Computed example of a mutant assay.
Amino acid sequence: MFVDIHIIQNFAPSNLNRDDTNSPKDCEFGGYRRARISSQCIKRVVRSHRSFSQAVVHAGGDTGVRTKRIKSRLMDLFAKKYGKPEIVETEKVAETVIELLGLKLKDEEKTEYLLYLGENEAAQLARLAVDSWDALLAIEPEQDKKKKKGTGQESLKEFQEELKGIVGKRRKEARSYAADIALFGRMIADNKNMNVDAACQVAHAVSTNKVEMEMDYFTAVDDLLPGEETGSDMIGVVEFNSSCFYRYSNVNVSKLAENLGFNNDLTTAALLGYVEASVKSVPTGKQNSMAAQNPAGYARVIVRRDGFPWSLANAFQKPVRPSLDKSLEEASIDALERYFERLKAVYGTEGIVCDASFNLHRDDGGSLRKMLDALKACVAGEGS
């Protein structure tokens, strides 16, 4: 079962997602220049939105953190949760745990790359390490490490497998990952045991309209400038645009359930929290200077049984234009709905089991809450 999420959202002048030159990200689509928001940017604001985290925690799940500083996280748990005050000891045990997981420290404090780890996973790693504290402290340098035993397990290798089992795949039992890891996956090149196949695909958001980048020339005056002097003490330029975005993502509900240990309540909560956060979240780039806090004008969720998700991005191959009686957002919604009807005519609707939406521009356009309730009822009915 797949859930397609389609969102139309118009933004006032903004620079929501910047490239390496601080310019708004863009791309060419349908032969025209478009504004763009990267999928990475969208994932971050969604997984950090309180609608997602609250839904997951309320259902008994947890969320993850993405960090290179897992060493300091483990040391903090050792000290605050288990009362291990000696920094030399906590540091050695944390480094040993990281090595036994098959990871490497780039310097004394950070792993080579960002590690996506659930809070429950970190807590379990810390607990297992504390249970074998003395044995871990006794582990010699790398050349002698494999010879050491007495970890409370039959061998160091067995202890190492138990460590990896906390963050890895166990085929013999249901495995529950942090909800955002279950959705977006995890890839660790040095330890494939830690990899998690994502249940969610997120597209780069593209503008439905053709865009031209604009420049904001700004100056700043020194507040303590002597009265006899004039002029600015800072001059700069910021690029921006105003665009209406089409945002698309899909969730493989069966894969999400597998990644969450087949916990139906948690799966439903994670899915609904994800959809709500997708609608409500807004990228944070340059918001303090532009405040483009514009809610989505349209959202639609479509539940399919046939494993054939549809992106509707091609509805905007030809750029949408506003008219005297229709705004850019309204015209974009109309283009999306027309294209969706054509797809249904060609491919059929047999696989669609739920189609719910809200439209800000219609008096009877529904609401976000009604859309989420319809999605919840559909998923619950399919799972029963």
Rank of each mutant, 00 (worst) to 15 (best):
G383S: 15
D222P: 06
G185D: 02
L272W: 07
K80F: 11
Q160I: 00
D19S: 05
S384W: 02
V346F: 02
D134C: 06
F240T: 03
R186C: 04
D62L: 04
L16E: 04
V93M: 00
A335N: 06
D19R: 05
F11K: 02
A35K: 00
I42R: 12
F29P: 03
I188R: 07
T21I: 04
E158V: 13
G165W: 02
R66N: 13
A299E: 01
R300Q: 07
L312R: 03
R305V: 14
A257S: 15
D144H: 07
S243M: 01
V93S: 00
Y177A: 03
V238K: 15
G348C: 03
N120S: 14
A220T: 04
R34G: 09
V211P: 01
V206P: 07
G168N: 03
G285F: 09
E162A: 13
F11D: 02
Y217E: 12
T230Q: 15
G383M: 12
N17I: 01
E140A: 12
L128S: 08
Y246E: 04
E337W: 07
F358G: 10
F2E: 13
S155F: 08
A220H: 01
E89P: 01
N10H: 05
L272A: 03
L271A: 00
V211W: 04
K255P: 02
Y32T: 10
S207M: 11
N209S: 08
E109S: 09
R304M: 12
E258W: 02
V301I: 01
A178N: 04
L183H: 04
F159K: 01
K71T: 05
W133N: 07
A138S: 12
L372Y: 03
M290K: 15
K145D: 02
K370D: 14
E239M: 06
L128R: 08
K25H: 10
D107E: 05
Q153A: 13
E341I: 04
R171P: 15
I235N: 10
C378P: 14
V320W: 00
R73T: 14
S281C: 15
A12T: 15
V279A: 00
I37R: 07
Y274F: 11
G351H: 04
E91N: 09
E350W: 10
Q160F: 05
D197Y: 14
E158D: 14
Q143H: 11
P295L: 06
I98P: 01
N191K: 09
S242R: 11
N264K: 10
K110F: 13
E89A: 12
M234Q: 14
I8C: 07
W133F: 12
L260P: 04
S51Y: 14
L115Y: 13
L360Y: 07
K106H: 10
E28F: 14
L103E: 10
G152N: 06
G64Y: 05
M187F: 12
D197H: 15
I352H: 03
E162C: 09
A299F: 00
E108R: 15
R36L: 00
D20K: 09
R127C: 05
C41H: 07
S38K: 08
R36Y: 03
S332M: 04
A122F: 06
A374K: 11
N191S: 14
Y248C: 02
P226S: 10
A35Q: 01
V130K: 06
A292D: 00
